[in-house]
Structure formats: C-alpha cells, structure tokens
Design a protein around this nucleic acid. Structure first.
Lengths: 220, 220
DNA sequence: TTGCCGTTGTGATTAAGCTAACAAGGCCGC
DNA sequence: GCGGCCTTGTTAGCTTAATCACAACGGCAA
C-alpha cells in the first residue's frame, strides 16, 4: 500500500466505476461484488479489485463492496463533491452540441463560458452559457478561475488558441481538433479525435476480424 | 518481420500518421524523417520507426521516408481507397452535430443513413442524410450493406439498439453513450465517453500535477 | 461458538508497449 | 568512385498493465 501513485490505466477507469455505482445506488442496491461490477463495466474482476485496492481495503471479504461507501470515496477522489467550471472555445457545429450536452447529469461539471469569433453569437447567451469574443478569453478565464478548456475550433487555429490558453494558465485541454497540440508541461491534453476513432474502428474490423476472441475485454 | 499481427497500439496510431502525411503532401514535402514526424504527432521517433517497420522496410537509411509512397501504402492499409458508409442511430443533439461533422474532409467515410424515433424528422433529409424510422433500421442496414454504426441515443436505449444492430450484422459500433455495451464477439465497440474524458482530465490535473515530466509524451 | 462459504486483496506470472542505443546501410558531396 | 554522414531498422532492457490463482478473512447459518 503505502501511498503510491495510482496507475494511469486505473485512473481512466475510475469515472466508469463511479458512474455505474451511482446507477446501482439509484436502484437501491447497497452492496456489489467485483464480479458483478465486472459484467456491467466490462473490466476484468481482478483488475477491478486491484484498482480499488490502490485506495486501501475498501471491501469486505465474503461480502463485497458497500455501494454508498464507495461512492462517497470516489466522489472525493474524482473531485465530484465540488462543481468544476470549464470553458468552451469554438462555438461551431460541434461546440454547439457540447453546450447542449448535459455534462451535469452524470458529473459535477458544467460549461460556464464559451468563446468564439463569430459576431452573430458573441455577447449572446447560448443554451444558458454566455459567449464571449475570443479576444476576451484570457481575461475571462483568469477572472472566472477556469482551469479547463474544451476546444472545438477549426484545425488551423487550434495551436494558436492553445497558446492563448497556456498564457491564461489553463491546466487541462480537451482537444476535439485533429491537431496534436504543443503545450508546456503544466498542461495536460486529452484528445478526442472523431475521425480517428472511426478510422481505427474500420481498421480493426478489416484486419482483426473475428479473431482476438471475446471482445467483452478490451473495448476502446 | 514475417507477417505478424500489428499491435493494437500501433493500429491506433496509423490514422494519426496518415493524416499528417497528407498535410505534408499538401505542403509539397515529399520526404520526411521519423524525427520530424515525431514532433508533429507527439509520438516518440523510435516508436514511429517501429510502427512503420511492422509493414516492412518503408524508409531509406540516411534519407527518411518518401511521403507519397507512405500515403499510398497507408491508404490501402486503412481502407481509405474506398468509401466507407456508416449509419447514425439517434439524431438528437449530438447526433445532429455528427451529421454536420465533415468526416469526409479528412477521411473516406460518410454517414449515409440515420435513424431516429422522432416523427418530426423521420423521413426527412438532414444535412444531406436521409432519416429513417428506427423500425426500418435492420432492413436499411442490410440493404445498404452498412457495417458500421454510430450510436448517439439516450443511455437507457443503448443496449436495446445495440441488440438490433447485432441482428443486422453490423461489425463495428462507435458508442457515444456512457453505457458499456454487451455485444457478440463479431462486433467491435469503440467507446467515446465525453463525460469520462472530462472527469479523467480533472483527475489527472488534480492528482498528477506537474510531475510526470514533459507531456509531449503520453497524451490521451 | 463453530465451521463453511464467498469474496477480497495480493504475490507471481505473463503480456504488451515504450525507449535507448547502435550497427547496417543508403545518400550525397567531392 | 569514395568516404563521411544521416537515418533507418532492430535488439535489448525496462516499464506498465492485465490476469491467474489462492491464502486470508469476514459474514452468516446452525
């Protein structure tokens, strides 16, 4: 045990666990085993037990895990006990959809400010979120203490926008553009590349075929 | 060498390489080194060389790689030399955005059919794509020989829709819902969970901090 | 209280992936 | 045509992650 760092792979699974635990609680289930969890989230039960064990002994042998207790625990771990405000940069096609996307339903996150260059929407409120001109981005981010930005701008402006975000001391970027961003190492980038996902999927289908056995394992 | 199977991690990077190579070609660069590529796509140069080497000796020592040659090669590998039609299931908020999303700009993929339950849009054409009622899904998918589906339906209908897709012999699913789907092992699932991405990003920021060194490495 | 049963937590093993480092070998200037 | 230089292709070592398998241990019934 001894307070070691959580493996990256484990960290990526935490939100998945957290969400399913909440589903269980909604269904008034107060107890769950790693095997049962495994079925629902498609992660090997041993992996789940190991993941949990990084945080100490959360379960009881012969019994399983206490759902409310786990939820309380992960809520803190995942910072879900406080609201996180994020910014959206680029209110085009995809950006608009994200404004309407209900992040708040499943998590304690909301888009609290958006930025764009389009004069038709700048200084309006879209889906409850104020749209500011891009030129005010730095100021607003600092004033509102926003540390996370989602970027859905045209590919060719992505790096430029990123540089601005860096100046405003943003700490994390969720990047929907296909560009791989250059950032200082104070910033963490998470890429969501839709075209890539599709191409990868096509590749796997054409080349891995039925082989590789049950795909219960290894989604993504 | 000897015709082995491409590692999963490599496969996921192929579309990234492919895209950047096309950017190079557009800029009339006909030659590139692994080091140069490395900077652009944020992948270690040794990893790139290794990735390429799975496909044989594509480069020339002391020279680098021939861009057009690589593109031709990857185009075939990634099935980009022929159009891939995909279906969209669920034309709500996010679904609409995907209809407008220009997959075709960066890849030879297009959404050629969409399905929904909403009578207001069923049997209309949205963004150039015909919307069919969900009840016709099986028939249309078979008639149009569509093997890949994107699902952007409400979470609680996701599994149900998936089961229908399975019956229609779909081979791949790009899943935008937070549910982890159960599928027969003829189907490959790729999950895109936006809430998860954000939560993971938040977790990393709060817990990994500046440590971990340069983040040029290990995005996603 | 006792003993069986079920499920955890974890050591050991295997698998997958990344990166450093360098010999092999082609390019290019002279 | 020759020699130095550059960049590949690959071997080896290392790191991370997944999985197996089981002893430890708490719950629960009698």
């Amino acid at each position: 045990m001894a307070e070691q760092r959580i493996p990256r792979a484990t960290a990526k699974r935490l939100p998945i666990y957290y969400r399913y635990l909440n589903i269980l609680l909604d269904a008034d289930k107060t107890r769950v085993s790693s095997t049962e969890l495994s079925e629902a989230v498609k992660v090997d039960s041993a992996t789940i037990r190991r993941d949990f064990s990084y945080f100490g002994a959360l379960g009881k042998r012969g019994y399983g895990y206490d759902v409310p207790k786990l939820i309380e625990f992960f809520k803190k771990i995942l910072n879900q006990d406080q609201l996180t405000n994020v910014a959206l940069v680029g209110v085009g096609n995809l950006g608009h959809a994200l404004l309407n996307f209900n992040f708040h339903q499943n998590s304690n996150v909301r888009i609290s400010a958006a930025f764009d260059v389009n004069d038709n929407i700048v200084n309006t409120v879209q889906s409850g979120v104020p749209i500011y001109p891009l030129s005010e981005m730095g100021k607003q981010l600092r004033d509102q203490q926003i540390a996370i930005a989602i970027i859905t701008v045209p590919e060719n402006t992505a790096q430029e926008v990123t540089d601005e975000l860096a100046k405003a001391d943003v700490r994390g970027i969720l990047n929907f553009t296909p560009r791989r961003l250059s950032v200082p190492d104070t910033i963490r980038v998470q890429n969501v590349d839709l075209t890539n996902e599709l191409q990868t999927l096509i590749y796997f289908i054409d080349n891995y075929g039925e082989l590789l056995g049950g795909n219960e394992k290894s989604q993504d």
